[in-house]
């Protein structure tokens, strides 16, 4: 239903197992081979839907979204549409720039902040003049195919709402669980969620699981930041508590990404003790919550490995490969 994730099409129709996802992607590779054999597309095996590509697509979408000043939720919806579409369609049989624009166009309508088709096409053309056809009919045509490919299931439930709900719940029950999510925790978790759309998480797990993973990472990250800060000694004032996630910092905790393992760190700093207590209390809350902890761990690991990949991200490489494929130069 539209109010309820549990009976939503997102869960009943579009939530898949990792195995099913992999199977679908194998089928796509077979499809690509067939398309190449029948001469419909050129053989460009280096165009792959890998982390590099996914980060690139994400940045394109965010760029267009910023230009149009669309709400975060519309952006998030567009990202899920993109991932869903690419479960069934090969990157190599479409124009990815037109796809991104179409995803955002449909998402804005669904999230009740519609953008005029002419405006969105002209903004996209400003960003990518060589890839976006001037004729708005091309975008309108793709809209049909995008919606069809998703089997006309368009309503989504995002973890942002779960994040706010958990924050509010913890605030309302602070005497029971002994901690709340501060403004910074919330901001960190929020930006982690923004990035989570690069991954497959939204096809694999319910929104609250992803929200909890984001909270977990931001609490642990905070602890790690504090450790780094404590280690840096007098240099600590250099550190600014920026809203933006520091990739290196997250990478640095991948070593002990298993839940709870980071609590073995014994520090003498008072603030670190507080952080450790906070993590413990959050774990208490999770244990009470009946949330599937294995899924939370999986989601946490996937988000962390995203940042590892991001560290090696090479935008120019992807851009050039796509240019070669789409324009033949």
């Amino acid at each position: 239903m539209s109010a309820d994730y549990w009976s939503s099409s997102q869960r009943t129709k579009w939530q898949v197992s990792r195995e099913a996802l992999e199977e679908n992607r194998r089928r796509l590779i077979v499809l690509e081979k067939k398309l190449v054999q029948s001469g419909l597309i050129k053989d460009q095996p280096h165009i792959r839907y890998d982390a590099n590509m996914r980060i690139y697509l994400h940045t394109l979408l965010v760029k267009l979204g910023r230009r149009l000043n669309v709400r975060q939720v519309a952006l998030a919806t567009a990202e899920v549409y993109l991932v869903r579409f690419l479960v069934r369609v090969s990157l190599r049989e479409i124009n990815i720039y037109l796809l991104i624009t179409t995803c955002l166009y449909v998402a804005c309508k669904i999230e009740e902040c519609p953008q005029h088709i002419r405006l969105i096409v002209s903004e996209a053309r400003n960003l990518w003049p060589e890839y976006i056809p001037q004729d708005v009919g091309k975008l309108a045509e793709f809209e049909f195919y995008l919606i069809e490919e998703m089997d006309m299931y368009l309503v989504l439930h995002h973890p942002y709402k779960s994040l706010i709900q958990i924050r509010d719940f913890l605030e309302g029950n602070s005497s029971l669980y002994g901690f709340t999510l501060g403004k910074d925790d919330l901001q960190h978790a929020w930006s982690l969620l923004n990035d989570s759309y690069i991954t497959d998480l939204h096809l694999l797990f319910p929104p609250h699981t992803i929200a909890i993973a984001a909270i977990y990472i931001s609490i642990v990250l905070r602890k790690n930041l504090n450790i780094i800060r404590a280690g840096a000694g007098s240099d600590s004032n250099k550190y600014t508590d920026s809203m933006k996630m520091q990739i290196d910092d997250i990478v640095s905790i991948t070593g002990d990404s298993t839940i709870r393992s980071s609590t073995n760190y014994q520090s003498h700093s008072h603030s670190i003790d507080e952080d450790t207590i906070k993590i413990d209390r959050f774990m208490d809350f999770l244990n009470h919550s009946h949330v599937n902890l294995n899924e939370v761990i999986e989601a946490t690991q996937e988000m962390i490995s995203l940042y590892v990949a991001w560290d090696r991200y090479n935008e120019g490489q992807v851009r050039k490969a796509l240019q070669f494929m789409l324009l033949g130069r």
Partner: peptide, 13 residues
């Protein structure tokens, strides 16, 4: 070929 890809030709077909 290139222009057909730009207008999602292969996929549409």
């Amino acid at each position: 070929m290139a222009s057909s890809l730009l207008t999602i030709g292969p996929y549409r077909h």
